[in-house]
C-alpha cells in the first residue's frame, strides 16, 4: 500500500496553513438600495478550504447580512452555483488554492436570472424551462409486474445526463440565455436528453418537437461555456449536439 501522497498532505497540514485572502463580493439588497455594490472582506483561511467556507467565515464572524444559498457543501445538492472570478462554479467544490488567492477573489450571482439579494437569484424561470421538456419517463401499455429490462449498454447511453443536479451553472453561463431568457437553456436540454436516449421511454418524439421550437436547441451556438461550467463533468454541449442530430435523423 503506497502512502507518499498522504505523507505530503499531512506534512503540509502540520505548518500553520492560514493565509489572508480578499473576498470581493457583489452585494445587492433592494430593501436598502436599488444598486449593487462590490464589497471587500479580508479573511484568514486555509487555502485547502472551499469558497463556501470563506463565505461562511464572513457570514458567521463578520457580516450576518451576507446572503447565499447552500446545503450539502460537497457538490451534490446544487444550491451554491455562483460566478467566482468570472466563471460559474459551485462554491463548495472550488478550493481557494485553485483560484489564485494572491488576488482578490470575486464572487457574484449567476447571470441571466433576476438577483433577489446578494448571491440569491430567482430560480423559477430555470425550473420552468426544466418542467417544459417533460422531464419524466413516459411509457405506454400495461406495466410489467417486475422491472423493465434494460441492457447495460442501453443504460450507459444516457448515463452522463443523469448526473445533472439542476444547479443552473450551465444555463447561466450561456451567452444565448443571457440575451434571451426565453431560450430553454442547456440544463433543460440535458434533462430532455436523459429521457430521449433512455431505451424505456416512449415520448422522445414529443420532447424533440418541444426542443424544435424557436427557443429550443437550434439557439445553441456551441460556445462550450456550459460544458466548462458543469460541476458534474457532464459533456453538456455534446448532449445538445446529440439532441440536434436526433432532430435531423429522427433516430435516438
Amino acid at each position: 500500500m503506497a502512502t507518499p501522497v498522504l505523507d505530503k498532505v499531512e506534512a503540509e497540514s502540520a505548518a500553520s496553513p492560514y493565509i489572508t485572502v480578499t473576498m470581493r463580493i457583489r452585494r445587492f439588497n433592494p430593501e436598502i438600495s436599488d444598486a449593487s455594490v462590490w464589497e471587500d472582506f479580508q479573511i484568514e483561511i486555509d487555502p485547502k478550504e472551499r469558497v463556501l467556507d470563506a463565505l461562511h467565515k464572513i457570514k458567521w464572524d463578520v457580516d450576518g447580512t451576507l446572503t447565499f444559498r447552500r446545503s450539502c457543501a460537497h457538490g451534490i445538492c446544487g444550491s451554491d452555483a455562483m460566478r467566482i472570478n468570472g466563471k460559474n462554479r459551485l462554491a463548495c467544490k472550488t478550493l481557494i488554492k485553485d483560484i489564485n488567492p494572491e488576488k482578490p477573489i470575486t464572487v457574484e450571482a449567476i447571470k441571466g436570472l433576476t438577483v433577489l439579494k446578494d448571491l440569491v437569484v430567482d430560480m423559477e424561470p430555470f425550473f420552468q424551462a426544466y418542467r417544459d421538456v417533460m422531464p419524466f419517463l413516459v411509457t405506454k401499455g400495461n406495466e410489467p409486474t417486475r422491472e423493465r429490462l434494460q441492457t447495460a449498454e442501453d443504460r450507459e447511453r444516457f448515463d452522463d445526463t443523469t448526473k445533472c443536479i439542476l444547479c443552473a451553472a450551465c444555463t447561466s453561463s450561456c451567452p444565448v440565455f443571457w440575451n434571451d431568457g426565453q431560450y430553454f437553456g442547456p440544463a433543460a436540454i440535458v434533462n430532455a436528453h436523459r429521457f430521449i436516449f433512455d431505451s424505456r421511454d416512449e415520448a422522445g418524439e414529443q420532447r424533440l418537437e418541444i426542443l424544435n421550437d424557436k427557443d429550443g436547441v437550434w439557439r445553441c451556438r456551441t460556445t462550450f461555456n456550459c460544458t466548462d461550467a458543469c460541476p458534474r463533468g457532464i459533456e453538456v454541449t455534446k448532449a445538445i449536439q446529440e439532441v440536434k442530430r436526433a432532430l435531423i435523423t429522427r433516430r435516438f
Binding site: L137, R146, E147, L149, A152, D198
Partner: peptide
C-alpha cells in the same frame, strides 16, 4: 418499492441480463 422506482424511471445499474 424498488420496482415502483424503476417504473417511475430510476436508472438503476443493470445485470448482464438486463435486471436491476
Amino acid at each position: 418499492a424498488v420496482l415502483d422506482l424503476e417504473k417511475m424511471g430510476l436508472p438503476f445499474n443493470r445485470t448482464p441480463n438486463g435486471t436491476i
